[in-house]
């Protein structure tokens, strides 16, 4: 079971952070957070970016952990596959959440 969990953990963490950031964005737009800013920096954008960096850090940490002896899988095959899904998690977090850095948060009529 640990082998299966190790395999599923990185993409699961991606799914959780993806949903959480989508949720944060939805709540922010619904409650008109983009209008709150501090010295030209939108606090909402700052919150989204921080959440994104936290999600990236988590994936990197998972990848490192997979290399540590304590968390290694029992067989070479499972170790390789776990590393592969670890990279999937990292790429997914970068790819799917990059819009937080480039897109207008809620639109002119948000």
């Amino acid at each position: 079971m640990r082998d299966i969990l190790r395999l599923l953990l990185p993409p699961l963490v991606w799914l959780a952070s993806f949903s959480a950031i989508y949720g944060l964005h939805g709540v922010g737009c619904a409650l008109r957070w983009p209008e709150i800013s501090h010295q030209e920096v939108s606090l909402f954008r700052f919150a989204l970016l921080s959440a994104w960096f936290a999600a990236i850090l988590m994936q990197v940490a998972l990848l490192f952990a997979l290399h540590r002896d304590r968390f290694k899988a029992g067989s070479a095959f499972m170790q390789w596959t776990s590393l592969a899904t670890g990279w999937v998690g990292l790429v997914a977090v970068l790819w799917t959440l990059y819009p937080v850095a480039v897109i207008t948060a809620c639109g002119a009529y948000g």
Binding site: W95, P99, V102, I103, T104, G107, A108, Y109
Partner: peptide
């Protein structure tokens, strides 16, 4: 990656402002 960026760029341009 190229298509994603292109598509979002287009979407961004079409937003009401």
């Amino acid at each position: 990656a190229a298509l994603t960026v292109y598509g979002l760029h287009v979407g961004h341009r079409l937003m009401p402002r």
